[in-house]
Design a protein around this nucleic acid. Sequence first.
DNA 1: ATTGCATTTGCAACTATTTGCATTATAATG
DNA 2: CATTATAATGCAAATAGTTGCAAATGCAAT
Lengths: 134, 134
Amino acid sequence: MRASSVEQIIIETLSKEHAHLTSQQVFEIIRKRLPAVNQSTVYRALTRLVDSGKVSVSDMGTKAVVYELLTDGLHHHLVCQKCRQIMTIGHEEVEDFFGDLQLKNHFQIVTNHLILFGICENCQVGTNTNTEEM
Amino acid sequence: MRASSVEQIIIETLSKEHAHLTSQQVFEIIRKRLPAVNQSTVYRALTRLVDSGKVSVSDMGTKAVVYELLTDGLHHHLVCQKCRQIMTIGHEEVEDFFGDLQLKNHFQIVTNHLILFGICENCQVGTNTNTEEM
DNA sequence: ATTGCATTTGCAACTATTTGCATTATAATG
DNA sequence: CATTATAATGCAAATAGTTGCAAATGCAAT
């Protein structure tokens, strides 16, 4: 794979923002530095970065998927379907499960960013105000 | 939730087909019985069915997500990124992991259909012919 | 049957994502 | 340095999926 300028800028961008960004947000930020860049170029660069394991892509239940840099250790997320809160959990909470599955099914897991939907502690009691359903 | 005719037909369709269908496939099949039905109606009915837990929606790594009826027991899938083979695993292989996470994070998991990507046994050795990359 | 209300539907517009193809840029090789 | 191969990009068109709004429908209580 060639060193693509767009890929580099995406990595720098995701590294700086340190958050989950949609392809649109990535596109907007990149345009400030490369005004002529095409949106499909951004999509394709993001796809390459995901394929090479540098970036994760997740459907958080919003209408657009989000991208995140995977440099500082693997992690996963729990997403509350009521209040939309996103909790981050470390890979150590997932490691053993993955290991078991790999052994039992002779399958080498590549997935590196798990998104699990559910109801957070706060929303499990009936008293929360933020009841925006999914 | 009211008994929607489209929802009923979707359930019958998914029940008969017993497979992962894209929204387009569901749409085509439903059109045979309700020729005037609109595609957005199908999307919305599918969304309602997913929200109510009757149907699962999964991104299998193809360009369109797929839907599956969840009547006969929970299950999950391992998808090979090389040969695209889909393996099905029972919920019992996932149960303990989910239970642990729920306890540790005080989070009630709703996700009922896990998709994990990786490399199947066959494709782990270098000798397979079907090397269509993701 | 009629009314009132909430849900579902159709439609059209809009956002999100993918893809084919021609062109350009970079790297590799002679 | 010139040539060739490969990967990246732009553009436009196509496919996926979402949403606002108004109209239609189903359900429940008269």
